[in-house]
Structure formats: structure tokens, C-alpha cells
Simulated scan of single mutants.
Amino acid sequence: MSIKHVFKRTGGWLYLNTSLGRHPLRGAGVILMLHRVLSNDRAAELPHRNELCVGPEAFEHLLIWLQRYFECVPLMTLLLADPESVPNRPRVALTFDDGWRDNAMNAFPLLRQYQVPASIFLSTDFIGSRQHFWWESIGETLWGSHGQVARHSLIEHLQHAGRPLPVLLDDIDDERRSLALLHYLQSLKSLDPRTLSDLTEACPQGSQPQALDWPQVRMLEDSGLIRFGPHGASHAILTGLDDQRLHEELTRSWTALENGCAQPLPVYCYPNGDNDARVRQQVAAHGFAFALGTEAGLYRNDGDPLNLPRFGVSQRNAHHPELLAWRIRRGAHP
């Protein structure tokens, strides 16, 4: 571990274990952003998976750590708390983006074991379908998880789309190759949603859907630990849509939640966190009192409720939560 990581872990530990460090957290709320919990930790450690994935051992370690230092509460309990009656012990709420099937298979058993509530924000077009999330399909195909024939075929499609692969994606070192893949996938976010959909279609579909289905959604909701909100319908970046398509995305995602859930959350979760004044105005016009972004910061009931801050959870900072504490410290505004 690098000296920088040792410094951050030490600083994070001091932040939560000294009265001076804990002071900025007094009465504050922390919203955490997760995506996937894979079936093993080694798969989650590579850079192109690390930011969106955690393994079960790291996730369990995180839950134990959270219960030690925070009061784990449902998202709406955190958002609707009276600032005058918020306890000194900081509160934390867990959120999951997209609606991955492994939220039910791998995350929920641990949430149930430790009785930690969570909110899952669904990209509703994917739920109950065999549609695949582009990041997973393109990333794993380029990684070679589906064989070299599929990889080379996708590379040709990417070249036609004007996005040739960087040389480092053929590096023999797994760490360097995975890091190059991470940067490359991030660069694809700027592509038109239709182009991303076409590229995803060029990937092997696999035998299992990647997203939850509606019976799983209802089973999780019936547990009393999980609630659901919308994360777009098609996961299109809302700031890139014209007014009509933006209205359709917001309406379609909420209608699906109303039909599929008993009590959907009045909270929108922006795909990729992207929002602007026009998007926020439309979200409010559709009846949402709150919306989640991706900027780091504490929740203190005094910011923009339509761009709530969250701290991202990765395999690295779930396995070493002092690193997460350091990120919270950097994002804290007393």
C-alpha cells in the first residue's frame, strides 16, 4: 500500500475516532452510492470494476463498520428529519443505482443479516427484461470474458463508431489493461444513447439477465428493508435529451415504479449524476421533492434538494473504510 493510502487511512480513522474529527459530522447525514455486489471479491478488485463493484467480504466489512460509527437509516428518514431533533450520532443511508440482479442475490442477504435498510434506484426499461447495461456488456466483452471472437467483433463495431481502442488495452499486465479499459469506458459515456445501444447489441447477450425482475423487486420491498425509486427509464443522460424525450423518460420511469412497487420513493436519481437547471425544473414538475446527484458532500437539509450529495463506494474503500471516512472528511462542510 502506498504512503498516500496509509496517510488517508490514518486520517480517516482519526476523523471518526476523535472528538475534534467527529465534530463536523454532528447532526449530519451521509448518503452512500453503490451499484453492484459481486459474488467474489477478487473479481471486484480490477480497476474497471472497482468503482462500480464491491465483493461480498468487502460489503460485509463495510456494513459492520457503518454500524459502529453511524446510525443506519432509510433514505427518507434521513431526508425528512427535523434538523432540530437530529441526534449527534451521524446518520447514513445506503443507495444502489441501476437495479442490478446481484443486489438481490448478493447484497440483500447481508443487508438482511445486519438489518441495514437501503434504497435501490431502477433503470426501469431493464427491469424484467434481458436488456443489458452497456458498461457491463462492452467492458466485459473487451476484457475477453466472452472470448476473443466476440472481442474482435466488438472492436470492429467500435472502430466504425469512431472509437478505436487504445494500444494499452492489449497490455499483458492485468492491472494496466484494466485501468486502460476503465478510462476507455468512461470516454464512451459521451456517445449518443442509440450508438451505445447498438454497441451493446453487438456484444454476446449471455443466458442470464443482468437486471432485477419485478417479482424480485416486490420480494425485496416486502422485506421492509428495501424501497425503490426511479433512475431513468433507459438510463439515458438526462441533460442530453430534448424537452420531449426528457418528459418521456421521467414519465415512463415513474409509471413503471407505480405499477411495479407498492410505495415508490418520491426521489429521482439522475443517471450518471448529470443534471442542470432545466432537468431539475422538469424533475420538480413531475412531483419529485428530492433528487440524487453524485457530488460529494454531507446532507444538512440546507442545500438543493434536487441535487443531493452522495459518496461513492468502491471495492477499495469498502475493504478499507477508513478511506471512505477520509472522503467524507474531504466532502464535509460544517
Rank of each mutant, 00 (worst) to 15 (best):
Q186R: 11
N272P: 04
D173T: 10
N317V: 03
S129P: 06
A180F: 12
I127K: 00
L63N: 11
Q131M: 14
E156S: 15
R194H: 12
L212K: 08
P321I: 10
G99L: 08
C53Y: 13
E140M: 12
A44C: 12
L158N: 06
E51N: 10
P334N: 14
A43V: 08
Q115S: 14
S314H: 05
R89F: 06
S253L: 08
P87C: 00
R22G: 02
P204R: 03
A107H: 09
G206L: 11
F288L: 02
P204N: 02
A93G: 06
C269P: 04
P166G: 11
M33H: 09
A284Q: 12
H320R: 05
V217Y: 00
R280A: 14
T124P: 10
R330D: 10
A202Y: 07
V54L: 12
D222A: 15
P321L: 04
R91I: 08
K8E: 14
K189D: 13
E60F: 03
L265H: 03
P321A: 04
R329A: 05
A236C: 13
D98P: 10
D198M: 11
G11I: 02
M76R: 13
D192M: 04
I64E: 10
M219G: 11
I328W: 04
W13H: 14
G162Y: 06
A256G: 09
L158F: 07
G55Y: 04
L78R: 03
A161W: 01
V116H: 04
L165A: 02
S187V: 09
I237M: 12
